[in-house]
Design a protein around this nucleic acid. Structure first.
Length: 177
DNA sequence: GCTAATCTTATCAACAACCTGTTGATAAGCCCATTAGC
């Protein structure tokens, strides 16, 4: 059965990915892009990744973290800058055009079998395990990470629903008697 | 202490079949998510 709790800190295979250290030059590029559009689409993130010589997944995480830290500030700024509505409108249009998502990954039955088996052994694989799986089935590691996130989430939802289902079954049985 | 990495939860959206369920991708997180490396 899948491990249904966050990873054990003492488990050696559950290492995190090593921290990315962005240089000042890289940060300059990223901050400029963020100020222009805090919700870049996949194409823009890919372009930025090339420009600052890192992986697209690192760009995605950087934007997520930056939004989390700057959401509050930008909301209050927006109230002060109501005179700049026109500029905001143009940016909004541009950002809407740039919201194309990454293409869906289509897993083959064999790839899914490997993933499901891995999930049943450990629902919280560390970076090394994810990399190993990625190599094994030929899918990028960030996609593996998302697959596990979705699988855990749906696993938790299913588990929450199960008691209700059991209760319904019991009620049905009682009615039959 | 700052911030990259990771987590859960909710939602969007593509896809297979024809309206809806499944599932990959993305966003938010409010006593402003938590964890952990530097």
């Amino acid at each position: 059965m899948a491990q249904d709790s966050p990873p054990n800190k003492s488990t050696p295979t559950n290492h995190r990915r090593s921290r990315t250290k962005f240089t000042q030059d890289q940060l300059k590029v990223l901050i400029k892009a963020f100020d222009k559009n805090p919700y870049p689409g996949y194409a823009t993130k890919e372009k930025l990744a090339l420009e600052v010589n890192t992986e697209e997944s690192r760009i995605q995480i950087w934007f997520q973290n930056r939004r989390a830290r700057h959401q509050k500030k930008s909301e209050s700024d927006e109230n002060l800058e109501s005179s700049q509505d026109h500029d905001h409108l143009e940016e909004e249009i541009q950002s809407r055009e740039d919201r194309h998502r990454r293409c869906r990954t289509n897993y083959t039955p064999s790839q899914l079998h490997t993933l499901v088996e891995a999930f049943s052994n450990n629902a919280y694989p560390g970076f090394d395990s994810r990399e190993q799986l990625a190599k094994e089935i030929g899918i990028p590691e960030p996609r593996i990470q998302v697959w596990f996130q979705n699988r855990r989430s749906r696993f938790h939802v299913q588990r929450k629903r199960e008691p209700d289902k059991n209760l319904e079954q019991r009620q049905d049985q009682e009615q039959d008697l």
